[in-house]
Structures are given as structure tokens and as C-alpha cells.
Design a binder for these strands. Sequence first.
DNA 1: GCCCTATATAGGACACGTCCTATATAAGAC
DNA 2: GTCTTATATAGGACGTGTCCTATATAGGGC
Lengths: 187, 187
Amino acid sequence: MSLEYAILGFLSYGPSTGYDLKRVFDSTVRHFWPADQSQIYRTLNRLGTQGYVGHELVEQEEKPDRKIYHLTEAGREEFLRWLATPHAPDEVREGSLIQVFFAARLPNEEIIRLAELQAEQTRERLQTLEALKPLLEEHAAQIGTRRDVFFWELTLEHGLAMTRAGLKWIESVIRRLKTPGNLPEAD
Amino acid sequence: MSLEYAILGFLSYGPSTGYDLKRVFDSTVRHFWPADQSQIYRTLNRLGTQGYVGHELVEQEEKPDRKIYHLTEAGREEFLRWLATPHAPDEVREGSLIQVFFAARLPNEEIIRLAELQAEQTRERLQTLEALKPLLEEHAAQIGTRRDVFFWELTLEHGLAMTRAGLKWIESVIRRLKTPGNLPEAD
DNA sequence: GCCCTATATAGGACACGTCCTATATAAGAC
DNA sequence: GTCTTATATAGGACGTGTCCTATATAGGGC
């Protein structure tokens, strides 16, 4: 569902091909809504049969013809309707916590090793997010207004805030794991 | 994948039926890994053909026969192998941020209304998580050791930390939206 | 009186997302 | 010289998860 509306949203800035949409996705919303190339094309197809987008064919030699998609009036209306509608939050899925949940089964050193790896991964995500900022600014300059950029940066801020919270948590976990007497021994 | 190992994990505490597993899920890991009833049964089935679990039939009248599942030796080994293996973090999917991303298209009051709804939903999740604590303690008393409970509570802590971070973020967003001159007008 | 919940399992249909492959060519990396 | 990247679209196969329904009965709420 969300992918559909993300695509309509980007098309509301102007016509685009599936290929370009994929690139815009990767440099803007990827950190909270990754999109597969294959799925973008399939979704554009579906949006077409629903009458929310149309496209013009531009013939090319030696490459597949480009399909330049644009919003229809119905598409713009549907997008704005969705945008103004409150939605239930997505359910959280954090597989790494399953490992934490059952970690009592492992020896202490093993747990600490895994926790430190997770801390490392979180730090990497922090860097990825920080590296996203310039990409986002770039696209902002090309397709967004200053008002758009305000909200784009809010989503990045959200990612940073959540990742920092995750890092704090795992670091505090590691500290407690290393403090003697904190972690009950296996019976 | 994760569901498979969560089931093996719970069966490592002792035999159980699909029905009981569903209830244990809902009161322990649901907040980071929700599981559908239907899917639990199908997964138990698959784990059976893989040789990781076995079951005994207990006949009942007027109700479907109970299948009491238990871990096989292969299942226990596979679970421990997985538990000690580092995994790549799950990708984040936060559909509500798509709305934020395109919010510039909406009038200011509308955005504030939506943001306040989201803050409210976040506060509700906070309450849900806090209500989970006693349920978790209950199951802890029944099937877990003190060492288990330590980790179970860590996952709950994680949920609380993330939710509080999300709440802080959305509250700061609302504050900024309400501060005049902060939010650029539409061109 | 009817609906919901509890107990217990199971399967069809479907939505959504991922992975891999195909088609075509050219430029640049190593 | 081979491999990767860029350009551009598309489909098969599969994995995972959701929703709804069926079966069977009893008890509690409104």
C-alpha cells in the first residue's frame, strides 16, 4: 500500500520513469521504505490499470523504450485523500530482538560478542543516515521546495533519533553484561 | 525465518501446542515480532518435515485433537547454531514517515492534526508496552529462569526506549510546526 | 436470543516484497 | 580482457505474512 502512495507522491512533483523513481527512492525514502526495482515497475503497472497514472512512450534505440509516467487527475486526488487520512502505525518487526530474548541460552562471552556486533551495525547505520543528508539536499534542490525540504529532513531526523536511541540501548546492555553480578547465571 | 527460530526457542523451554504458542507469543514477543495463528501452525508443520520438531497426538472429544510439539535433538542444535550466529539487521519500514515526507502538500493545520494523532498513537503504544510487563513476568515465573527474565526485560526496555524516542521526535515536530516562521509556506 | 470468547487445528486466497534472470550496448575500472 | 556500472523495462518463482473461513461445543455478556 505505502509504496503505491510513495510513487504517486513522487510523481506529484512531475513525470518520471520507473528507472528514475528507483534512484530517487534510494536517495530519499530508502531508509524508512526500501523499494525493489522489480516492485516499482509492477506497482506502476497496477497504478496504470487503476487509472491513477498514465505514461508516454519515448522510443530509444539499443535500449528499452522509456515510459514516462505522470499523475492523472484521479491519481492526484487519491494521493491527497490518502495524505490527509490518519493511518494505523506499522507493526514493529525486529528480528534481532528474538536473539536477545533467548540469549540466556548462550555463554556470557558469546552474548557480549553478539551485542558488540550489533552496536557496530548500529553505528554503521548512523553513518549511512548521515551520508544520506547530502543526497537528500541534492534531490531537494532539483525537485522540492523549501517547504518540502523541511519535511524531508524531519524523516531523516527521525531515523537518526531512533538509531541513536537504539545505540544507547545496546551500549547500556553491553555495560550491564560486563558488570559482574548483574547477569544471573544459568541454573 | 525469524518466526521459525522463535518457535524453536519457546519449544526449548518444553513441549507445547500451537494454540499455547500463540498465546505465549502474544504476551512476550508480540511487540517486536507479531505472529499470526495461521502462520504458527504452518510453520510448526514445516519444522516437522524438516525434522526440527516432533509431536504427540492427544485425542479430545468435541474439540480437534491436540498436537503437543517438542524439539528434536536436531532442532535444539539448529536453534543454538542460529542463536550464536550474527545476523544482518532487519530493514526499517515505517509507512507513517511517507506521510511526513510528503506533508508539505497539506495545509499547516491539517499537518498538526495528523502529527497530534501520531503522538497519541505513540502514547498508546507506550501504555501497551507497560501493560506487557506483568504478562511477561507471569510467563517468566512459569517457564523462564531468572537469567531468561533478564533478557526478556531487555527486549521490553528496547521497545520502551524506541517508543519514547519516537514520542520525543513527534512532540518536537509538533512544537516546531506550531512555532510561527519555522515552517516555510507553500510557493 | 444473539454475539463473543475460549478451546484447537487447518487450509484457501491473496498481498507484498525479494531474488534472479533476460534484453542491449557502451564506457570505464583493474 | 573481463568485470562492473549505467541505461531501461519486465516477468517467473518464491518467501513471508494476513485474512477469512471451517469444524465443534460451552459459557458469559448485553
